[in-house]
Design a protein around this nucleic acid. Structure first.
Length: 424
RNA sequence: GGAGAAAUGGCAGAGCGGUCUAAUGCGGCAGUCUUGAAAACUGUUGUACCGUAAGGUACCGGGGGUUCGAAUCCCUCUUUCUCCGCCA
């Protein structure tokens, strides 16, 4: 959620940046936000004045009662009736207007950084870097969904029996590989200075709102109606919400957290080749890195986080590329996003395995995550997060790229964690 | 799941219908003293909104109610503690 005062003071700039994101009717929406807020201010003034008047009268009545002047006090009580009624009406009116302002404000996406390319579709993303050698596979090389059943390491059909499509069962070396990757990713994050946390994987409504999954992406989360809880779509939600309603010391920044969680996404929709096998799941594992940063440092930190995730791919010896997303392809709340994609040799396509974003104050404004600056003023911090990394597509690429006629080779960095260097 | 008790500022803790603009202590910050520090003393110390300012409004777990007036009374939800039951 954008800061209202910022919109008021920087309207031109806001419109310019919203244009990068292809936000429709930007000017009309911004104008109506400001207009509504003007109404809010006027109404609040009226409400406050009415309350102030009533407070004065109440105090006078109190004094009269104490002085034993009952009759005069009773006479004065009559005068307050109308005020009270007004107060109630104004309170209700104010509440409605505040809600309206809020409802408008949450429809406005974050402002992209000025360096973000304009554009609408994935084709307009900028390729910042491409690294590694795309492997040449032998004749008869298979896509990962065939390899997994050939070596009996991931069972999609069994998952369908237990739960449904998109909930695979990892078996034997497949299960061991998951555990190894999680440990590897967590150890690397810890080595980079991130403090590991193990958060709940169900969150309440407040947390959903805090990071912006609610209200707009409600349908993408699994929901437990009985207890009004949501299964997390990413560890970003519980980890970032740790800092909801928190005022930090400036010297605490930046805060680095990492955590492994399963992630749950409903993402009803497309079927077919693009979502086969591990390409898109309802439940998957991911290690997430999150930082709460000083506004002056957040873009430097974004680069560091990108490098952290890229280094993981280097360790895994996977060919990858880095995209800087164009305005139209970025998520609602992001000011700048880098995507990391690995090359899937059998599918002959790039698979997104990480998304690293700076949200600036868009999340922290809703979270009320602030710090005190050297003057003692409270300021909104910046929040950033990134996948480091999401497992399924990494596994897909590892299986496909490293397949040989004798089995699948496991890269050295992971073999140390697996206890084996070959799946056969 | 059952019975009882409780929820107040960074922390501890008083207040139980009318200067609560919330006592007091600890902690934090600034100053005095000191070569420096400690101790002692003095001052200061929540958040948000409205207002150029003076000032005003709201917030004592959340929501609602009673009253001219609520931290204080009532209802409700949540959480915590004690006891019982169940349990990895």
């Amino acid at each position: 959620m954008l800061q209202l005062n910022y919109i008021r003071d920087n309207k031109e700039n806001v419109l310019k940046r919203l244009a990068i994101k292809n936000f429709k009717d930007a000017e009309a929406v911004i104008d109506s936000v400001i207009e509504k807020d003007n109404l809010r201010k006027a109404t609040q003034k009226q409400t406050d004045d009415t309350k102030a008047e009533a407070n004065v009268l109440a105090r006078q009545i109190g004094d009269l009662m104490k002085a034993g002047n009952r009759e005069e006090a009773e006479a004065m009580k009559l005068k307050t009736a109308e005020l009270k009624n007004n107060e109630k009406l104004l309170d209700e009116k104010l509440k409605v207007i505040e809600q309206e302002v809020h409802n408008l404000l949450v429809t406005v996406p974050n402002l992209p950084h000025l360096s973000v390319p304009a554009g609408n579709s994935p084709e307009e993303n900028l390729v910042m870097l491409e690294e590694g050698v795309k492997p040449k596979l032998y004749d008869g090389a298979k896509p990962h969904w065939e390899l997994t059943s050939k070596y009996d390491i991931i069972d999609f059909e069994l998952g369908v029996k237990l739960t449904g499509a998109g909930f695979p069962v990892y078996k034997g070396k497949g299960a061991r590989l998951q555990r190894a990757l999680i440990n590897f990713f967590l150890d690397k994050a810890t080595a980079s200075g991130y403090k590991e946390v193990q958060p709940p994987i169900l969150v309440n409504q407040d947390s959903g709102y805090g990071t912006g999954q609610l209200p707009d992406k409600e349908g993408q989360m699994y929901y437990v109606a009985e207890d009004n809880l949501y299964l997390i779509p990413t560890a970003e939600v519980p980890i970032t919400n740790i800092y909801r309603d928190v005022i930090l010391k400036e010297s605490d920044l930046p805060i680095l957290n990492c955590g492994y969680t399963p992630c749950f996404r409903r993402e009803a929709g497309s079927y077919g080749k693009d979502v086969r096998g591990l390409n898109r799941l309802h439940q998957f594992d991911k290690v997430e890195i999150v930082q709460i940063a000083h506004p002056q440092e957040s873009y430097e930190i974004l680069e560091q986080m990108l490098k952290h995730s890229a280094d993981l791919l280097r360790d895994l010896e996977l060919p990858f590329r880095v995209l800087k997303l164009c305005g139209g392809d970025m998520s609602f709340g992001s000011a700048m996003t880098y995507d990391l994609e690995v090359w899937s040799a059998a599918q002959q396509r790039w698979l997104e395995v990480s998304s690293v974003s700076n949200f600036e104050t868009f999340q922290t404004n809703r979270l009320k995550c602030r710090y005190k600056d050297e003057k003692g003023k409270t300021q909104l911090a910046h929040s950033l997060n990134g996948s480091a990394l999401a497992l399924p597509r990494i596994v897909a690429a590892l299986l496909e790229n490293n397949q040989t006629e004798n089995g699948i080779k496991i890269p050295k960095a992971v073999a140390a964690y697996c206890g084996f260097d070959m799946i056969n």
